[in-house]
Design a protein around this nucleic acid. Structure first.
Lengths: 269, 269
DNA sequence: CATCACTAGGTACGCTGTACGCAGTTATTG
DNA sequence: CAATAACTGCGTACAGCGTACCTAGTGATG
């Protein structure tokens, strides 16, 4: 029933069970001895990302990635312990794309960078990355990223608010709120185009397929709000509007965070 | 290279291409003629959800679901056009779990329900559902839900803020901000346990596998913030604390939304 | 009762992730 | 310098996936 395995409940558990796939970041990129690997993690991640960007996450198969970098399928397993390890590589590579060196002049609280501008930069960079790589959301949902680039970003993020003298839990709340909002907002933005990618349809075809259903719903008269949305909503159709809408919503979230900070010392001299 | 198919670029596009998988909600649940189907959509969705809850989304295969309801594998395709259609059924079934009939006494703005309490109820219900079904996030990322239950919730949501006399775009911004935040927040909450589910490990095993890597990172001295998080953070370990933290963050988001509303007419008589 | 649209389900195909084993290559060691 | 051990590269093979296609049975309608 449970289908977890035929036997072996693993009664004797050593500290590091060799049966478990290892964390990829624990393995050295260059072997201590033996020939130099023909490929690098960056190259592999770039190839996988290129495929995912162009053909969707489902197109990222071990065979496909191996072909992309020009090696045998099983050779890939010399670089990556499992397919999830490949995903870890992709996640961390996208984390490396974000340029978060927003070392702004610290003017506001205490002495330090402008935390609001810092979080804003994190949010904008995160949104840009997620929009550039629509598949990232589904990968990030379900695995914390502890690769070198992810860790660097984490350090930068906490550095943005370090001078506020909050305890770690409060800092995590601030950052998590922003990151959560960004992820959720991008999910909404991507919902349409991601759906059409999964089914392999372009915008025209997707609308063509949905149109009869949408019309049926509107004619039923049961969904007045839905009718208004279809008839009146301008948001989903304007391209540049999304940036502005995101920015506005982000300001609301930052307002909320600012209101939750302990009373700011009087700025006046 | 593209491997999209051997031939047939589909040059002649009729208005409704029969090659496209149909929208499941367009197909009648009961056939007009012929024998009554042995199973219902609700039953199939419930079976799939049960499997996903218990064994993870990867365990939801057509064969497995068919076995669960006691029919042949291909029989399932009599009820569902494709596996994505099964996912649509699961999504809408979870939408049906949410009890949003929070018809509160309208006291605040104009005459209507308390929009803040309404959005709060939506957020709490959404979070509860997502926590009850960890796999839901990855399904929702990438497909808008237009099933009957989803539409009902959409109508209820817009109904919560209808009396505020906003235009449709502004209403969508409000609702999307809340929904986005909820989804993102739950993703953060679920990250840990979802990761361990994907790899089939329990909390103990996951920590055991990560422990050497975490220790290495801490000993490297390169990540001071990471060190502080591991050493000082109490949040991830306290169970009931998550509810409270979510509630606090949600209040921040709602504060931001309230601040963005047009000036409220003076409540004083 | 005959008809025929429908349901149920078996078989088969191309695809996936990956376990395993073998040959070739190179940094270290005697 | 030669031997060795550790490593890379990769072909084969297998179980499991989604699902196209086909056959047989069934029950409401005429």
């Amino acid at each position: 029933m449970t289908s977890t395995g035929p036997a072996g409940d693993g009664s004797t558990e050593s500290s590091t069970d060799p049966r478990l796939p290892p964390v990829i970041w624990m393995m050295p990129e260059r072997p201590a001895r033996g020939p130099k690997p023909a490929h690098s993690r960056d190259e592999i991640a770039a190839a996988a990302i290129k495929i995912a960007d162009g053909e969707g996450l489902d197109a990222v198969t071990m065979r496909r990635v191996a072909a992309e970098i020009g090696c045998g399928t099983m050779t890939l397993y010399r670089y990556v312990p499992t397919k999830d390890g490949l995903f870890d590589l992709m996640i961390d590579a996208t984390a490396g794309e974000e340029e978060l060196v927003v070392r702004l002049p610290g003017t506001a609280r205490r002495s330090g960078p402008d935390w609001r501008a810092g979080l804003r930069a994190i949010a904008q960079a995160g949104r840009a990355t997620l929009l550039r790589h629509p598949w990232l959301v589904s990968l990030q949902s379900g695995r914390p990223s502890f690769g070198p680039n992810g860790l660097r970003n984490l350090e930068l993020g906490f550095g943005m608010i370090d001078h506020l003298d909050l305890d770690v839990d409060q800092m995590m709340i601030m950052l998590n709120t922003v990151v959560s909002f960004v992820r959720g907002a991008v999910v909404a933005e991507l919902a349409e185009q991601e759906a059409q990618r999964r089914t392999g349809l372009d915008q025209q075809q997707w609308q063509r397929r949905m149109a009869p259903y949408v019309r049926k719903l509107m004619d039923s008269g049961q969904y007045p709000m839905f009718n208004r949305i279809i008839a009146e909503a301008k948001l989903p159709h304007s391209e540049g509007g999304a940036d502005e809408q995101f920015s506005l919503q982000l300001d609301r979230v930052l307002d909320g965070l600012a209101a939750d900070l302990p009373a700011e010392p009087e700025p006046g001299d």
